[in-house]
Amino acid sequence: MLAGVTAAVLATGGIALAGTANAGETGTGTSASSQQPAVGASAVPKHAVTGYWQNFDNGAKVQKLAEVPDDYDIVAVAFADATGKPGQVDFKLDPALGYASEADFKADIDALHKKGKSVIISVGGEKGAVSVGSGAAADAFAKSITGLMDKYGFDGVDIDLENGLNATYMTQALKSIHAAKPNVVVTMAPQTIDMQSPQNEYFKTALNIKSFLTVVNMQYYNSGSMNGCDGNVVSQGSVDFLTSLACIQLKNGLDPSQVGIGTPASPRAAGGGYVDPAVVNNALDCLAKGTNCGTFKPDKTYPGIRGAMTWSTNWDATAGNKWSSTVGPHVDKLP
């Protein structure tokens, strides 16, 4: 989930480490009908909050899916792992989470479905080594993702590849998944540099799948200063950083409903770029209503802005769930 973080930050546990890769089953086994996705893209709220749930212990509070607060609408299980076959991914529960069985994990997914929540599988992370660089790899990726959806009841996939992405083949893979699962939830979590221009591979991928893309929750952190949509350089950790970088996506082809603001749940969750949850709310107000802006104010409002994302539900819980209890209710009240 995070990139460019120093070894010192790693030592504090303040980084999203990908789970240990497993080369076992690829998630293509037959599952009970109760494990079929029960929510899907059509049921994602107009304004939604996404949280990453850690399938590993890195110093944040270890939690089961049942402990994720109701303020989250989309829960991204982090992460699926590369298997060694190009494009193919798999998922294994980390024993550190305390699940007695895989069935208990599936039961928690079902329980979230009953609450109207979507549960998706995230691919990548700062340490992720998944590569989709050929037609064969795209096919393997699509088949393994749909297999995991069938096996666990995941509602979709999150693309969080931080070590390069090929727009041609990732588009092919995601279109194949959508063809097999028309109600699939597809989210993306690019780094800021990946969404600076519609010519970048991540941005191109988002535009290529615009007809079924749920939301791009860009990571507004661990990036240093970046260019805003007005051409000015903006420092991370400010309301202007959030609004002026979101503006780039909004002005270059994405629908407001496909733009979300991703921030760390606590200072420990990232190497830089943390903002108080109240700043996230101010940025959403600025984009949706033209209020609570900083120095930068968009030339129009985007009341359909999707919402916000955080890394992670675990770091949020470690900090007393301040992020979700502040941002969640605010997102619900957006116009």
Rank of each mutant, 00 (worst) to 15 (best):
V9G: 07
L10T: 08
A11F: 12
L17I: 07
A18T: 09
T20E: 12
A23R: 05
G24I: 12
T26L: 09
Q35W: 12
Q35F: 04
Q36M: 14
V39Q: 06
P45I: 06
A48E: 05
Q63N: 07
D70A: 15
Y72K: 07
A82I: 10
Q88D: 08
D90V: 02
L93M: 10
A100F: 08
S101F: 09
K106E: 12
L112I: 10
S118Y: 11
S118C: 15
V119C: 04
V119F: 06
I120V: 14
S122A: 15
V123H: 07
V123F: 11
K127Q: 11
V130Q: 06
G133D: 09
A137R: 05
A140N: 13
G153K: 05
G156I: 04
I159W: 00
E162V: 08
T171F: 13
L174I: 15
L174W: 07
K175A: 14
A179K: 15
V184K: 08
T192R: 11
Q196H: 05
N200C: 02
N208M: 03
N208K: 05
K210A: 15
V215D: 03
V216I: 08
N217T: 03
M218K: 10
S223I: 09
G224I: 08
C229L: 03
G231S: 08
V233W: 12
V234L: 03
S235E: 14
Q236Y: 04
D240T: 09
L242C: 04
L245F: 07
L245I: 11
A246R: 06
L250E: 01
Q258T: 11
V259H: 08
G260V: 13
A265D: 10
G273D: 04
G273M: 09
V275M: 02
P277S: 10
N282E: 09
L284K: 04
C286K: 00
F296K: 01
P298I: 15
D299I: 05
T301S: 10
I305Y: 07
R306E: 04
T310E: 01
S312I: 06
T313M: 11
W315T: 11
D316Q: 12
D316W: 04
A317L: 08
T318R: 07
T318V: 00
S324Q: 01
V327C: 02
H330P: 10
